[in-house]
Each structure stands twice: as C-alpha cells, then as structure tokens.
Amino acid sequence: MPKILMLSDITGLGPDYHVGDEAMAEVAIERLGKLVGKENLILGCANPAEVPNTYGIRAFAFYHVTDRNFRSLLWRNPLSYLKALLTNVYQVLKCDKVLICGGGNMTSVWPHVLESRLRLLRVANFFRKEVFLVSQTIGPYDHEHRKAVDQVLGKATWIGVRDINFSHTQISAPVHFALDDACFLERRHSDYSRSISQQGGSFACIAMRRFGGMDNEDVLRVASVIARTIRERQLKTVFIPHHAPRGTEGDIKLANGIRQLWPENGFHMVDPIPLASELKALTGDCDFVVSMRYHQLVFALSLGIPAVGVYVDEYTQAKLTGAFEALGLKPRVVSIDDADKYLDALVSEACASREEFVTAARRIQTDAKEDSERPYRLIAGLPRAESKLPINSTTEVKSS
C-alpha cells in the first residue's frame, strides 16, 4: 500500500480546533484509512499533539513560515533552519505520495501557509513524488505567488477544487471540480451532541463570526435580527461556534456578547467545540440554519436542512452563494446591511421549500459522491471511475 504524507491546517480536538478544516481532513483520513490503512498515513500540521488521539494517525510538526522568515533562520537560528529543511526532505522521502487536504489556504491572503507548503512541494517534485490537492479554493495570488504556484503545481497529478467559477482562473494547470469534502462527512452523535439536541423543544442552528470590518454594533444588529426571526417561530437557538482560539476567543467570545438578546433558556452555545461530525449530526436535527460561516451551510445543505446565508462583503457573498449553487439550489443569502429587511422572508421561503433541499441532498449522495472520491482512488492506486457531475460538460476546467 502507498504511504501518504498529508498536509492540513488542523489540530485535532483542542482549543484551536477549526470546524471547517477539520471536517475536510476527517473525511480525507477516513477515506484513505479505508483504502490504504491508517498506518500508512502521516499528517503534518502546526499542532500535531492531539491528531493521533483524535484521528488515529501519526503526525509531525509542520510550521507555517514565510520564505523571508525561513531564510532569516539561517542566520538567527541555523539549527532550526537545518531541522526544518531536513524534516521536509525526510518526510517526503518516507512517503510515496503527498496530499494537501481541503481548505482555502493556498492563497496570498495567508502567505506563511502558502509558502511553507510550496517549499515542501518543491521537495516532492524534486524526488518525483505524486502530488494531490483535494477540496481546495485556489487563490487569489499576487504576481510572485502566481508564478511560484504555476511552477510547483504544474507538476501535480490532481488539483481538486470546490468552486465552479473562481479557482480555475487562478492557475494555469487544469483543475477538477467536486463538492466540498465536508458534504460527505458522516454525522455521528456523541452523548454530548445528542444531549444538546434532546434538551427539549425544536430549535434552529446559527453560526456567526466577526468578518473583516464588522464592529460590535454590526454584530449586535445582525444577531438581533436572527434572534427575532427564530423567536417568532417559537424555536430555541443553538449557536454552533466553528473556531475559538485559546478556547474562549473567536466565535465563543462573539456568542457570549449576543446571548442577552435571547430569552432565558432560549439560547444554547455549544462549548466546548466537539468533532465536526458531531456538529453535523446536531445540524441534522434542527428546523433550519442561519449562517455566516461557509461550512455550517455545507453541513445543512448536504443534509437537506433549509438554510439561509448572511454575508459581509463580496468575497463572503461569493463563498456562501457558491455553497448553494454547487448543490443546484437557489442561493438564499442576504447581506448584513439588508438582514433586517429580508432575513425573515428568506427563512420562510427556505422552510417552505424544504423538499427542494431534501432532493438536492439526496442527489449529491449518489451523483456527486463518486466525483468526490475519484482523487482518493487515484492516490490509493485504484482504477479511476468516470465522472457523473458535469461543469459545462466536464469536471475538468482549465484557465485560458
């Protein structure tokens, strides 16, 4: 069986757990575990301590450092420089293939992540190891990064992307579309998540985060509209945080700042954050979802749960809209500036169209699942099945 080196921006369970990244990694690990055995997998990430306990695979420390800072190590701390360089070479030599798991990290927005991955991939190219990327958003890039990505990823065996209209414009190599891997994450209740679901009464799930230029007033204004929309339907609210650095910041800090907008016992925050598969199971038990987070929409839509997205800017609008379009659904999204006018009507429309959501969810579990599994079969050395999910008659797209 081939030995696979995986790169993913995950931590396993812990205070820096990020639901979206972990959801995609969980799918990749489970799929490859069945195909090649978990003993043949090793994952590089910045915080590897909890990965073996959470996912049952080995892990090593792979730190995200820009090229400039990495070069400066040669003078400031030559032993650290040499150790990092040799770690890349050692891990690549031990593997047969390299896989970068899903996410939006191959972009100039996070140069430290992009450049550190490109350094390892150059080593993989030098030693002629096959390289695969799955469930990615590629770009955007500045000029220098675009040249580097074209050079390095031009030798990749498979570049899998989760958006139809953007990633293929960011790279010269051909890309392959498939739905976000989190669409196929199995939902698994734990005693913890089941207890939240069964605490009494029907509920809606919400996910919020403080994007970009949002200030406290923006957060409270949007939260007030969401609270009113749910309260008018006589439902409780379950707040699902997706990222809480140090266990108390991020989404959990936001939730603690808005919970006073709900009546007593009408608001439950999921804290601590459990595995993504547990949150997906919890999502599957709710009446509807209102989300500012992409992966909370993915969870809902892949389960046939009516959902509405709330966006902040052009980028988040495109991302949330894409989640609906990828499943063939009408995008039901609204900006934070228009939520007061339109959110309630969109929620009513979504709930009245529940069968539309259910049909789309059933369809992707048949027609789209095979496309999602294709790169994993290639990694395992199994025959490649033909695609059944077209984008303009093909799942392969190349930029002009």
Rank of each mutant, 00 (worst) to 15 (best):
E130F: 04
S372Y: 07
I391W: 07
L114C: 08
L327T: 03
F60L: 08
P111Y: 13
R377W: 12
E39Q: 15
N69M: 12
E355G: 01
L7R: 02
K398I: 12
R231K: 14
V270I: 14
V131F: 02
L301T: 02
N88H: 10
D367C: 09
L235Q: 03
D150F: 08
V308F: 02
T394G: 08
E278H: 09
V65N: 11
E115G: 05
K34M: 09
Q170A: 10
E356G: 10
L185A: 07
A307Y: 06
R362V: 12
G102A: 08
G37S: 08
L5S: 05
V358F: 12
M269E: 09
G247M: 05
T137N: 08
W110P: 00
T395M: 10
K147L: 15
G266Q: 14
H112E: 15
L320A: 03
A84Q: 11
L282Q: 03
T157V: 14
K97S: 07
A281F: 07
D218I: 11
I230Y: 00
H145Q: 13
L297K: 01
I364K: 00
E26C: 10
D367F: 07
M106H: 05
R363S: 14
P375N: 05
V123D: 00
N105L: 13
A23L: 07
G20Q: 02
D285C: 13
S197P: 01
A182V: 07
H242W: 09
